[in-house]
Design a protein around this nucleic acid. Structure first.
Lengths: 243, 243
DNA sequence: CGAAAGCAAGAGCACTGCTCTCGTCTGTGT
DNA sequence: ACACAGACGAGAGCAGTGCTCTTGCTTTCG
């Protein structure tokens, strides 16, 4: 009764599905989402284009599957960077994860465009993508948690008018973190992808040359903005606040 | 002699060109860049699709024209906000310009996607778009200049390793400003569009609710990050609140 | 075993970007 | 004033697309 023993047919289905996605991803990486053609995928796979509709009901559904995979991929890259940097202090871990996300984006520009550029299919992201999209954000939340545990988490300012929204976001995202930090984190999350997007999409052409150094500095500043403090040499006292 | 008196034909040409762009912009706003169809534009204008190629050599060229117009439009919106806020202090002017850019983006999501989302035509922005794209950035540079004149421009930190790149960018963009501020400004510029893009593209769905207030706070923090200080006090020990 | 469901293939529809050709009209130089 | 080169619009046509429908074949399961 196990799903793999369910028969030759079920096994072939997931194999063909994977083959379609692989070929589609190949074409996506080569030419971009606009040029991705169902017929071309079918042609490359040696099957009739109509047969492909047994696996994906439409081109947009195929793209949605690729979007979810891309979210998974970039999320996995972030998690791998977090795990590889588990020995470092939170501020440094933040920067390393940011850099890993940037490297992934530069290595997969078209997939990056699919998920963080204009949402191509239809226009609105299906709900399936929401959990996959949350993976990267969750890595950052984990770093903040660790920083709070190590008492190296500063608390940014928060204008009184934003307090209700900050409390709401905090309850949804990380009830164990101070709302000031959660609010700053959400902003930094968007700002990070602004930095990466500008580089991937060429907005930094003729503006920023040493992009790696520039990004690293920007990521460091983001870390400070969300309250992550570099470790103090004097181990004893933990400064409570800093502006 | 003058280009307008050059004849009925030249006049008709620019009129038809404008009509094509208008109709294309209409379809772009309604359905997005992916659905923009040359034939549909021609159909709506009552002309043969082949005739349209007398005005734009390809669909991508049409899109490029729309991109340039969109850059101009968002640039004009930023400049208008700057001019309307000429009486305010630089920090407030910064925030008002940011909010104007955000409002423009929310009002023209597909055009925003065209210029700051994934670059659709081919993949690489033609050089024609570079000067148009610089308009928004120049508004921010002007605000920094004014702040420097009013002596309310703080100087952010800059790691030594980034000094050469900072000097290079400063020479290119604003030689009269401190490199520390120019570097922070370039980063804030990208981060601003990260914030706006996340909102326009739906990444804030089920995350941020009170987006206007959230954005205002984030824009204020960006202002501080680039060195713009609120006018009265120098130290940020108390939350600077202003209605 | 036989019915039911899954699957592949082909033909076909409506649409796209783009090219080529063929008349028509316009601006201009002699 | 006239003729000619160039701009223009329209139509046909090509290759390609997403997608549907029908027709046979194979696997699964009652």
């Amino acid at each position: 009764m196990s799903s793999t023993a369910r028969g030759v047919r079920a096994r072939a289905r997931i194999e063909v599905t994977a083959a379609i996605k692989d070929e589609a991803r190949r074409q996506l990486a080569e030419e971009g989402a606009a040029k991705l053609s169902l017929r071309a995928v079918a042609r490359e796979l040696g099957m009739a284009s109509s047969a492909l509709y047994r696996y994906f009901p439409s081109r947009d559904e195929l793209l949605t599957a690729l979007i979810i995979d891309a979210y998974d991929s970039i999320g996995a890259a972030a998690e791998a960077a977090r795990d590889a940097a588990s020995g470092s202090d939170p501020a440094r871990r933040w920067t390393l994860v940011c850099e890993a996300v940037r490297v992934w984006a530069l290595a997969h520009p078209h997939e990056y465009a699919l998920i963080y550029g204009s949402p191509v299919p239809g226009y609105t992201a299906p709900d399936d993508t929401v959990p996959a999209a949350a993976r990267v954000g969750h890595v950052f939340i984990g770093i903040m948690r660790a920083a709070q545990g190590d008492a190296c988490l500063d608390r940014p300012e928060l204008p009184p008018g934003l307090r209700p929204e900050a409390d709401r976001m905090t309850a949804d995202l990380a009830p164990d973190l101070p709302p000031e930090n959660v609010t700053a984190l959400v902003a930094a999350w968007a700002e990070l992808f602004g930095l990466i997007g500008f580089e991937v999409f060429g907005q930094f052409n003729r503006v920023v040359e040493d992009r790696k150094a520039f990004f690293r500095h920007a990521a460091d500043r983001l870390a400070r903005g969300v309250g992550l403090m570099p470790p103090q040499q004097g181990e004893g006292a933990t400064p409570a606040r800093r502006a």
